[in-house]
């Protein structure tokens, strides 16, 4: 069982393995915000994030027998979430490539365009919304390897060790991805925000 897992956790996992519906409902209630939050930051699109997050919980329900307790339950859940997001991003990029959909027609394209637009839409006038739009667009500019690290670290506040367990990469890799992601995001925000200010 997980290091430091309390007897309550162990009983909870046993109930999950027994497909106890109330236990699973509790699992969804405990982790829906983190799963959906990571999905949303990774996908940049509410409907896509909702679909991915739902699929994550379906996978958890199916795969709970495979949880061997070698990592924490939340680490395992975030790993499955990150994998789902990665797979969905690949699928969407293949689909976009096949259909040769112009970037500006995609959600990413719209965000990037909105972030770089000289004249923000009325609903983006508020500075908070403006910044959020820019940051979201900046996130989507990062490749998914860097994106997931910065989200897990700066939004989910996971330790390097936890991130390395989620992503199954070395801690050093996590650190290098993180500082590159931060630097890239900083440059994007500064350039877009400066453009806005000038306009």
């Amino acid at each position: 069982m997980t290091d430091g897992a309390s007897p309550d956790d162990e009983r909870f996992i046993e109930r999950l393995r027994a497909r106890d519906e109330s236990a699973f409902a509790e699992l969804v209630a405990r982790y829906r915000n983190r799963v959906y939050g990571l999905s949303y930051r990774m996908m940049g699109h509410r409907e896509e994030a909702e679909d991915v997050a739902q699929e994550v919980f379906v996978s958890l329900f199916k795969a709970i027998d495979g949880f061997r307790g070698e990592s924490r339950l939340d680490t395992w859940i975030l790993r499955i979430t990150a994998n789902h997001c990665r797979n969905r991003i690949k699928y969407l990029s293949r689909r976009h490539a096949r259909s040769r959909q112009p970037l500006e027609d995609t959600e990413e394209g719209r965000l990037v365009e909105a972030a770089g637009a000289s004249h923000p839409r009325p609903d983006q006038q508020a500075e908070g919304n403006e910044l959020e739009t820019i940051i979201r667009a900046g996130l989507l500019e990062l490749d998914e390897e860097h994106r997931v690290v910065i989200v897990l670290r700066d939004m989910d506040h996971l330790s390097y060790q936890a991130i390395s367990e989620v992503l199954e990469v070395a801690e050093g890799t996590v650190k290098s991805r993180l500082f590159r992601a931060r630097a890239q995001l900083k440059s994007f925000i500064q350039s877009r925000y400066a453009d806005r200010r000038r306009s």
């Binding site: 409902a25 959906y36 909702e50 959020e132 940051i135 700066d154 939004m155 995001l185």
Partner: peptide, 15 residues
């Protein structure tokens, strides 16, 4: 800035 973003919340009928 990144940390100050509102946490995205799933829709009410998510569960």
């Amino acid at each position: 800035l990144f940390a100050s973003l509102p946490e995205p919340e799933p829709p009410e009928d998510f569960d």
